[in-house]
Amino acid sequence: MIGLLKKDFFILWHAYHKNLALVLVLYSVMALAMDLTFMVFFFAWISGFYILSGLTIDNYSKWDLYAASLPVSKRQIVGAKFILITLALLISFVIGTLLCGLLTLLKGTPFLENLLSLFAVSFVCLAYFGVSLVLSYKYGVEKARTAVLLAAAAVFGCLFALGKLDLLQSFALPGLLQTLFLGDLAIWGWAVVMPVCCILVYLLCWAIATRIYSRKEF
Rank of each mutant, 00 (worst) to 15 (best):
residue 2 I to L: 04
residue 131 V to Q: 10
residue 88 A to I: 03
residue 56 T to P: 02
residue 102 L to K: 08
residue 193 V to F: 02
residue 210 T to W: 07
residue 2 I to V: 10
residue 215 R to M: 05
residue 191 A to Q: 15
residue 192 V to G: 01
residue 51 I to G: 05
residue 33 A to Y: 13
residue 86 T to N: 07
residue 41 F to S: 08
residue 27 Y to A: 09
residue 112 L to K: 03
residue 99 L to D: 00
residue 88 A to V: 09
residue 196 V to A: 08
residue 133 L to S: 10
residue 73 S to C: 04
residue 161 A to P: 04
residue 43 F to Q: 00
residue 82 F to E: 10
residue 111 F to Q: 05
residue 146 T to S: 13
residue 7 K to W: 11
residue 8 D to C: 12
residue 42 F to M: 14
residue 15 A to F: 01
residue 108 G to T: 01
residue 117 S to D: 07
residue 218 F to N: 12
residue 85 I to G: 04
residue 207 A to P: 04
residue 161 A to E: 07
residue 79 G to L: 11
residue 63 W to F: 06
residue 165 L to Y: 09
residue 107 K to R: 15
residue 142 E to Q: 12
residue 76 Q to P: 01
residue 109 T to V: 12
residue 23 V to Y: 15
residue 175 G to D: 12
residue 179 T to K: 13
residue 102 L to D: 00
residue 5 L to T: 01
residue 155 V to M: 12
residue 185 L to D: 14
residue 73 S to N: 02
residue 203 L to I: 14
residue 122 S to H: 04
residue 107 K to N: 14
residue 65 L to S: 13
residue 177 L to T: 14
residue 189 G to P: 05
residue 50 Y to H: 05
residue 96 G to K: 01
residue 184 D to A: 11
residue 184 D to I: 06
residue 26 L to P: 09
residue 115 L to G: 06
